[in-house]
């Protein structure tokens, strides 16, 4: 029993990180119908930005002296990472995607694959291929409840993800920017005719999605102990699966999809076989796309001829 609970706890925290990353996929897909493959690398860069910010603030000497990293600095690290990823995401949109926005659907897709490859290889070149230990931006405390181990990091992951989700939901539904985003996602040209600055709205979408991925990157580093330049590849793919599962373009759907993927991975690895963990994740994806392409919470949109 405690084993099952433990797997569920682990699955929920992993799933929350998938959910944070999934938001970026879901928002961009909703607005541009583009699978932004480079998003997983934006997530990686966010984690590294947090790493360098914390190191620059002297976390290593503090740790050596046994001091905890002050909370206000931790928040600063988070903001720096979010800002750098947002800048990167917007730059990618401006330099690589905007020139091909009106090209046939597959051109942007391949461009996205290219940007993803470029950032992976640049990451290997600049950050070096060795994995790095993530600095304890948040000092880890473990609690044990009836044989189930819980850490403050896992709780934080869950809470931060939930807060950011709610914030995003409010932003999309209660602000002018959100309204513009929804308008652009329904019809870009019509939105432009209505006086919406579509370029700015799209840039904002990329910026917000990328900032959320950076938050995911830091939480990921804290929870998974190490980061490396290729960390985004598999995680990003799974987050994308989560976005599709929940219904692409749908914010609560991304959360639901992320949690379900995280849980199913842990349970498959714990009770079936870790060998087939990824295979089963992909099977879920295929089954969803074939039988319910709009996802669990998505709305069917009839394609007009």
């Amino acid at each position: 029993m405690s084993q099952l609970l433990q797997q569920i706890v682990n699955g929920l925290s992993l799933g929350s990180i998938y959910a944070l990353i999934a938001l970026g996929y879901t928002m961009v897909y909703g607005i541009l119908k583009l699978i932004n493959f480079a998003h997983s690398e934006v997530f990686m860069v966010g984690a590294y930005a947090g790493y360098f910010a914390a190191t620059w603030l002297g976390i290593e000497s503090m740790e050596a002296a046994g001091q905890a990293f002050p909370l206000y600095l931790a928040v600063g690290v988070l903001l720096v990472a979010m800002a750098s990823s947002a800048a990167l995401g917007m730059a990618i949109e401006r330099l690589a995607y905007r020139p091909v926005r009106n090209a046939p659907r597959l051109t942007p897709l391949i461009t996205a694959i290219g940007v993803s490859l470029l950032l992976q290889n640049l990451g290997l070149l600049v950050f070096g291929p060795n994995p790095r230990r993530y600095p304890p931006v948040l000092k880890e405390v473990t609690y044990e409840l009836g044989g189930v181990v819980l850490t403050n990091v896992k709780v934080t992951i869950f809470v931060v993800t939930l807060l950011l989700m709610v914030g995003l939901q409010l932003l999309v539904h209660r602000t002018w920017t959100g309204k513009a985003m929804r308008a652009v996602s329904v019809n870009l040209d019509a939105a432009k005719l209505m006086g919406i600055d579509t370029n700015r709205t799209i840039a904002a979408t990329f910026g917000i999605g990328s900032a959320l991925a950076a938050a995911g990157g830091i939480l990921f580093g804290l929870d998974q102990i190490t980061i490396n330049p290729l960390m985004g590849v598999l995680t990003g793919l799974k987050a994308f699966v989560a976005a599709v599962l929940g219904g692409i373009g749908n914010v609560p759907g991304a959360m639901l999809g992320g949690l379900l993927i995280g849980l199913s991975e842990q349970l498959v690895a714990g009770y079936v076989s870790p060998d087939y963990r990824d295979a089963i994740t992909f099977l879920v994806l295929i089954a969803i796309l074939i039988f319910r392409p709009e996802g669990l919470l998505g709305v069917v949109r009839q394609e007009k001829v």
Binding site: Q3, Q6, L14, Q266, A269, P274
Partner: peptide
């Protein structure tokens, strides 16, 4: 699998 970062399921088992 190489590239995995989460080992908690296996270790819990």
């Amino acid at each position: 699998s190489k590239g995995d970062t989460d080992f908690s399921a296996q270790l819990t088992a």
